[in-house]
Write a protein that binds this DNA or RNA. Structure first.
Lengths: 245, 245
DNA sequence: CGCCTGCTTGAAGCGGTTCAATCGGGGTGG
DNA sequence: CCACCCCGATTGAACCGCTTCAAGCAGGCG
């Protein structure tokens, strides 16, 4: 069940079979389904469980009283919502299911045990959290300094790479279960403009959409347009440091 | 020497005197000075030390080949650069000193010992990292969905509150050692527009600038304009959870 | 069938950028 | 001690990428 997480964490180097078994057990304890559109955690709520996304897409979202909304992150299968989140008094943002979502809620004791007895696994989880932070920084750049076409292209490149890291791509195609409104909220553009830019990308031969699937016929071209450098995702690299906390 | 960190970490509840002594010793080991403008860590560099800012301001910055630049975070006295950063193969961004900066470089062994023997202190450090992540999310919203005046006002509110949390404010005044160009890079605006908006804020009686000091004559008014809610900084709140990892 | 959600298109308007100077103060070398 | 220089702040004016408003359109579903 935790295959997907294992696949991701393994990218930096193999984990002991013992660790994998423990992780599998921990994630199988409590499986919860959420319907599309459901608010999995609400803004201001007290953090309870550490949650791992097994299937489906969700987003972190912050809303204003006047209706403005910004998606501040996308959670894909294999993503951990927030490792230490119970240390904070309240969630600063909501997590909303964009599709039907299956999550595993990890018990505090299990995480505690992992941290103590399986340092290699604990490090893999922490490294994953750092990559999430790097993704957030890249979003600031995206929304702040890139033009609309660059912005959307960059988002699509990021999603494709992240899905590839957990084996959810099929050649040059992958799922894209986002509405144009959601793409707009993620890129800080208007829906109207997202629509027009997507058409540009399609007519430039950089993107094809069929239903909730996307295909990138010219990945190199799209990356060039987006100035996308996958380095920050730190996937596919070997463990850089064998020691230390 | 680590007074400032201790003050910040203590906001959620007192730490044992033993922990404080250890922290002081760990931060005194290796003190390094950096000149204003110096690149403390470079993009692509292999992470070495975990660094704590003791004095001065620095920023995390990402630059494009064509000269565009985005500041993705500001590092103030008491801020830890990145707790687990050695788990990643390369820095995705540069850290640049905006003023003369004094940092403490923490040794891996010291951090290891803290993590093992002083869980309360380790939790305080992790909580701080979570707050940094919340700040990053708020920056995405800032740059993505707020108008120029809201954006700048929000940045100023954030800085004032963060400085207040480490005792670096004086009534309604604090340091603001940023040039307008740096404010522009942090808010994703042009320098020209930053200049005009700052004038607006001043003539609206929401801001006064004297050299590298700023004064907020009407904090409530500025917060209203910015739709600033200090909750995400999670400062001044009591420890929510006594147990867990 | 009829409605609701998401996609698409056209046209007008504006917030913020870009370009191009000017101004002002602090530091430096002659 | 003064002239020069450079960086940062400031101002004006033209321009433009994107938003907003306002309709249509298509497909899935009760």
């Amino acid at each position: 069940m935790a295959d997907i997480l294992i696949r991701k964490l393994g990218h930096f180097g193999p984990l002991p079979g013992d660790d994998l078994r423990l992780l599998g057990a921990a994630t199988a304890r409590r499986i919860v389904d959420h319907a599309a559109g459901e608010e999995i955690v609400s803004e201001g709520e007290r953090p309870q469980a550490v949650t791992l996304c097994l299937e489906g897409w969700a987003c972190r979202s912050k809303s204003f009283a006047d209706g403005r909304r910004q998606i501040v992150g996308l959670l894909l299968p294999g993503d951990l919502f927030d490792l230490d989140v119970r240390l904070l008094p309240a969630h600063d943002h909501a997590v909303v299911a964009l599709t039907p979502v299956v999550v595993a809620e990890l018990a505090a004791e299990d995480l505690q045990r992992i941290a103590e007895d399986h340092p290699q696994l604990a490090r893999a989880l922490r490294r994953d959290a750092l990559i999430q932070a790097a993704i957030q920084r890249e979003w600031i750049v995206n929304v702040g300094r890139r033009s609309a076409p660059e912005r959307i292209a960059h988002l699509l490149c990021e999603l494709f790479h992240r899905l590839a890291a957990v084996g959810l791509t099929d050649g040059r195609a992958c799922e894209l279960p986002l509405t144009q409104t959601e793409i707009a909220d993620a890129t800080a553009l208007s829906v109207v403009h997202v629509n027009r830019v997507l058409q540009q990308l399609r007519s430039a031969g950089l993107l094809r959409l069929h239903g909730k699937q996307m295909e990138l016929p010219d990945p190199a071209g799209l990356q060039r347009l987006a100035q996308f450098d996958p380095g920050y995702l730190a996937a596919g690299l070997r463990q850089p440091e064998p020691d230390g906390p």
